[in-house]
Nucleic acid binder design. Structure first.
Ligand code: MN
Ligand code: MN
Ligand code: ZN
Ligand code: ZN
Lengths: 144, 144
DNA sequence: TATAATAATGATAATAATAATCAAAATCAA
DNA sequence: TTGATTTTGATTATTATTATCATTATTATA
């Protein structure tokens, strides 16, 4: 199973931080890895609850935080104010094309843009940390 | 006064929408136009309250909404979750370099990047609506 | 200018997303 | 197996923003 790597990363992180590995955390990681990318906390909660009806909302948020801390998950703040989470392990940096109708996310990387962004940092004397670029439009399907 | 144009835009909008022009709205517009760019609702509230101590928070939010609707103001959602507002009238589209230490905003436009973004929209069959690009780093002053 | 219709205001309550608290339950090292 | 420590779920708190509503202000008109 491909997920072996991710599970190990999570377990190693828990061990390193002297945290314990609960059933709930296993289940949330599993759902997160199985799910489509760019999921909200609420969507994750909805899926986990099917298998684990007693799960509490707080546990979802706590575990998402752990997943972000150990490098498996990246938080995205979208223009409409929603927060979404995507897989980070094994995924190189990328930006997003987002359909404002159907909310579809297309992952894109343009090496030319990346290079020009570095030049912008340099031109204004900034030490680069990260960037974020989102292109909002209407996708092919939604154009009808 | 340069602000004449902006005031007219606001007044025309209010008239067009059958809204009334209150002292509070005048004052909030005035503070917004006088202030530095990229202000939060709370910062705006703090400044307005000095001249107009009885102002209510709700009026700030209501008026910001009007300013956005009439094209004088643009809402920005920053990566850390805060919402900021900047002048829109007379300002061409631009993106931002943001210092993660001192929160300084530098406005930038790179025509090459803009062109490549259009190409990305086209390549993936998206009808472009808008985009947003933020470059986060540490500015010259904060590097010490 | 006085009036009357309409809209705006400020106080307050409501929302929604997320974080903090805490007693009970689960994990795990010895 | 035990016992120290952590986690959980329920609940409350927090924060930013919006909705409600009685009172007040604006504005068109007589
Ligand atoms: Mn992505
Ligand atoms: Mn700006
Ligand atoms: Zn679409
Ligand atoms: Zn700085």
């Amino acid at each position: 199973m491909i997920r072996k790597n991710e599970e190990k990363i999570f377990e190693d992180y828990l061990a390193r931080e002297n945290l314990k590995h609960s059933e709930q955390r296993k289940e949330i990681l599993d759902v997160f890895l199985n799910t489509d990318k760019h999921i909200t906390a609420d969507e994750l909660y909805g899926i986990v609850r099917k298998k684990y009806p007693s799960i509490g909302y707080a546990t979802i948020y706590r575990t998402i935080r752990l997943l972000c801390e150990c490098g498996l998950c990246l938080e995205l703040k979208i223009d409409d104010g929603t927060t979404r989470y995507e897989h980070l392990y094994g995924h190189r940096h990328h930006d997003h094309l987002i359909c404002v109708k159907c909310n579809r996310f297309v992952e894109v990387v343009d090496p030319d843009i990346e290079r020009l962004q570095e030049k912008l940092f340099k031109r204004f004397g900034f030490a680069p940390q990260r960037h974020r670029m989102e292109l909002y439009g209407i996708c092919k399907k939604c154009k009808k």
